[in-house]
């Protein structure tokens, strides 16, 4: 069982700060949907509104047919929520935490063991350990188990991979993909741009607004600038050394081992000559300029600049 989510021009203010600015979007049944954006973009506020923990200042949210303000009791029964900050009981053991959450939802660990098996198996050897004494990765798995114990139709995960190493992040996403196949709607937020490609669709968020809403493939396809990548003998000063390059070069950003630059109506040869001349005058060698394929992060940077 899964459920759709409809967000209609939702507004939320905290004192003078507009956390969400008339945001609208629809999430379909069974979708794995990603909210990608930095701290302060409104991801957590939106999740708290969907889970009925906050009341909007304007607009409304429907989870299936349920309204987040009036039907909050029903919404809470079908929603599993894993907040960004570990919120289970530190002084209860792994097993006690799970039994507690199961009993809140009138079920038992035994009855619903199959739902959490894939996740819980990995921490089961430590089931007598107090939750407060678990490592970060194990806490995350316990929190996910607790969020799944009542067979929710909608699973909401607030930055589950923040501060998690690259390998554990991969494993976590494999787990989410597997869970999605059981027919549950999953909303997940992350500050890591590379995780966008693992979602069916994503919302790129910035300061309470949507920068883009589409499948990761389409977001990349819609990138409408000329993008080039370059490298040289001296990558440590390259950004500073290009700070005065003019004539048609728009943005210059470091991207891993390369630098990505965007330009206005220049072809590869023209970009090459502008860049090579500038860098040679600053003592760089082995200057390589070539066409680049945009990634989600290029799109995000581009959209940020536009706004």
């Amino acid at each position: 069982m899964s459920v759709s989510v409809h967000i209609n021009s939702i507004e939320k203010k905290f004192e003078k700060v507009e956390a969400l600015k008339k945001l609208s979007l629809n999430i379909e049944e069974g979708e794995l949907f990603g909210f990608i954006g930095p701290d302060g973009s409104g991801k957590t506020t939106l999740f708290r509104l969907i889970t009925s923990l906050l009341i909007p200042d304007g607009g409304n949210i429907k989870v299936g047919e349920l309204d987040s303000e009036t039907d909050f009791r029903e919404i809470r029964k079908i929603t599993g929520y894993m907040p960004g900050r570990f919120s289970l009981y530190h002084d209860l053991s792994v097993e006690e935490n799970l039994n507690f959450y199961a009993s809140i939802f009138n079920t038992t660990l035994k009855k619903n063991y199959h739902l959490i098996k894939d996740v819980y198996e990995q921490i089961e050897p430590f089931k007598k350990r107090k939750a407060g004494a678990l490592s970060g990765g194990m806490k995350q798995k316990l929190a996910l188990s607790c969020a799944l114990i009542h067979k929710p139709e909608l699973l909401i995960l607030d930055e589950p991979t923040t501060g998690v190493d690259a390998v554990s992040r991969k494993e976590f996403w494999e787990l989410l993909k597997k869970m999605q196949k059981t027919g549950i709607t999953i909303l997940v937020s992350t500050p890591y741009m590379d995780e966008a490609s693992l979602c069916d669709r994503v919302a790129l968020m910035q300061k309470g607004s949507l920068l883009a809403l589409d499948s990761p493939e389409n977001i990349v396809k819609k990138y409408d600038g000329d993008l080039w990548q370059l490298s040289s003998s001296n990558m440590h000063t390259i950004i500073a050394d290009l700070s005065e390059v003019g004539s048609g070069i728009k943005n210059i950003f470091r991207f891993g081992e390369k630098v990505h630059i965007t330009s206005n109506g220049l072809n590869l040869e023209e970009v090459k000559s502008v860049i090579t001349e500038e860098l040679k005058s600053k003592g760089h060698n082995n200057i390589i300029v070539e066409a680049a394929k945009p990634q989600i992060e290029d799109c995000f940077l581009d959209l940020m600049e536009e706004n």
Partner: peptide, 24 residues
Amino acid sequence: DEPTGGVDPITRRQFWEMIYEKSL
């Protein structure tokens, strides 16, 4: 120790420019 967690991609890059400058 994980100095750039949570910030937007532009700020993250500006932070690294500060790091380069200090290392030079």
